[in-house]
Structure formats: C-alpha cells, structure tokens
Simulated scan of single mutants.
Amino acid sequence: MSTANKSSAVSDWTADQLPSLEGKTYIITGGNSGIGFEAARMLAGAGGDVVIACRNAEKGSAAQHALQAQAKGKVDLVQLDLSDLASVRSAAEIVATRYTKIDGLINNAGIMQTPELKSVDGYELQFATNHLGHFLWSGLLKPNVEAAQGRFVIVASLVHKMGKINFNDLMMRETYAPMKAYSQSKLANVMFGLELQRRLSDAGSASFVTMGHPGWSATNLQSTGPTGLMSKTYKWMNKLFAQSAERGALPTVLAAAGLEAEPNGYYGPTKRMESVGPVGVARIASHALNPEVARRLWDESEWLTDFKWAFY
C-alpha cells in the first residue's frame, strides 16, 4: 500500500477546524442522507452555500429543509440520477447556469452490492452510478470548479483495495458478483481522481483533487443495495462495528474545505484497519497508482459517456 500524501500532517481532524466558508459554494451528490447529508450539514454550518444533488426529489426536498433550518449558508436542491447520463447532462446544465463558481464538487453518491442490474444506458448499474455518472458530472462542471480554483472531491471506499478494473468485461456480463462490481467501481473512483490530478497538474490548473473515505459507517448504503442474507448480516454488523454517519463524513468535509487538505490528499479513519476512529491520512492500494491503467480507464470512460474532457 501507499499513502496518498506522506507530507501531510493531518491528525485527528474535526469540523471545528474549518475556516469560515461564507461566500463559497459546494455541490454534493447524494446529499439527502447518510455521509452526504452530514457533510452538507457541516459545510453549511460553517457558512458555505450547499447544493444537494439527488435522485429522489421528495427525499431531497425534506433534506433541504432540514439542512436549511440549521445552516448559516443557503441550501439548494437539484434533481440528479447519476445512473442516467441524460439526467447527468440536464442537472449539470442547471448547476452550471446557477453557480458559475464551484469551490467544491463533491462526488459522494453511490450504491453498493446491488443484484445484477443495468442502467438506462445499458451499463452495469454500480459502475454506471458510482463511476461513469460522476466522471461525466465532473467533466461538465470542470469550468465552474476552475473558475473558483476549487476542488474535485472524490468519496472513495476501503474496498477499492479489493478492486480490479476488468477491461475485458467492465460491465461484468460474463460473471457478475455484487461485491466484485462494487469494488471495481470504487477502484475506478480512486484511479479517476489520481488521473484527473495528473491532467490538471499538466495543464497548470489551480484546481486540484482531494479524496476521502468514510471507513465503516452506518448509512442507508448497507440496506438499500445488498439483498437477502447479506442485508441481514450488515444490520447486525453495523451495530457491532460501524461508526456514525457523522463521523464517517469528516474525511469528506476535510477534503472539500479543510485548510489542511492537499492535492492528491487521501483522508479517512485511522483506527481498526482504517474502518473507524480519528481522521488522518489514509492509504491507497498500490495497484490504484498505475498510470497506464488509469489512462486506459479514462479513455474507456470518455467513450462510454460520449464526453471528451478539455484541458488547456
């Protein structure tokens, strides 16, 4: 394994260390529940204007009102279905028009260990939602992030260490397994973030990429994706081993707005094999650092989303 940023001195970071975020704008996918909701709450509590982008408009509206009741900044809502590339394009157009400058584009939403399902575009659902949707979303909103010299924030997972990018069967049509598909999609998140940072650096951009993972945190992720025995297993395991969604959101908040966060920084819990505990520098699997695989994944992602990123 390799640390993402060995020079970082981040240790036991908390949201109390946030500066005033007044006048700054943060867009967070999946901000209506779990890690996303808690991260949005902390950012808005520090004065930032927050936009939650989520699939279910009713749940999104309820979350928006709950957040606004305790926020110092404004809370907006945009409907977005990351598994539907047409929805991604439509939502990105709305956001780009409303918010010319984005200080933090937080790619948080995701699904986990679903049965074998396809997106409306015909792609494996976990890969489509967790990776391809965010790949396109980030590319479309890149000019707005760069206008603010802002951050692209990738919410990854411990299971990226188990992942493998199977270019011969990216959509797992030959041999599907829920965890295998999930770990591939989360490895793709990490490799996308690292490759994006390489390209931003080569282009001389002032924007940069930061990443974080929530460790093992109790959220809806474990109950809305897995089915059968796995779903039941997660319920009792969460009670024994998981930390709260609030604790799990801290790495995301640090990556999005902490003064301590650095380009290519990767943050997460530091106890019990990085599953819980104080927030500090996390570790990236060595195979995620392969630039050749990352470049190929990038090219495949551009082809699958029919979108070409622009770097100047």
Score class of each variant (00 low, 15 high):
298 W>Y: 08
219 T>P: 02
218 A>Q: 03
192 F>S: 07
236 W>S: 06
189 N>H: 11
176 Y>S: 05
284 I>P: 09
271 K>D: 10
254 L>C: 11
216 W>F: 15
274 E>Y: 06
280 G>R: 10
177 A>N: 14
202 D>H: 12
283 R>M: 04
183 S>A: 10
238 N>S: 05
236 W>Q: 07
254 L>V: 11
272 R>D: 05
195 E>G: 07
237 M>N: 02
203 A>D: 12
217 S>D: 07
211 M>D: 11
224 T>Y: 00
229 L>V: 14
225 G>Q: 14
214 P>G: 01
275 S>W: 09
297 L>P: 09
275 S>R: 06
173 R>F: 02
197 Q>T: 02
251 P>M: 14
235 K>Y: 08
265 G>Q: 09
262 E>H: 00
293 V>N: 05
277 G>E: 02
292 E>V: 14
273 M>H: 07
224 T>S: 12
191 M>C: 10
288 A>I: 01
285 A>Y: 02
283 R>K: 00
243 Q>D: 01
225 G>C: 12
246 E>T: 14
230 M>Q: 13
176 Y>F: 15
185 S>E: 13
286 S>F: 05
255 A>H: 04
171 M>P: 00
225 G>L: 02
290 N>M: 01
231 S>E: 07
198 R>K: 13
267 Y>K: 09
276 V>H: 07
254 L>N: 11
215 G>P: 03
185 S>C: 08
290 N>I: 14
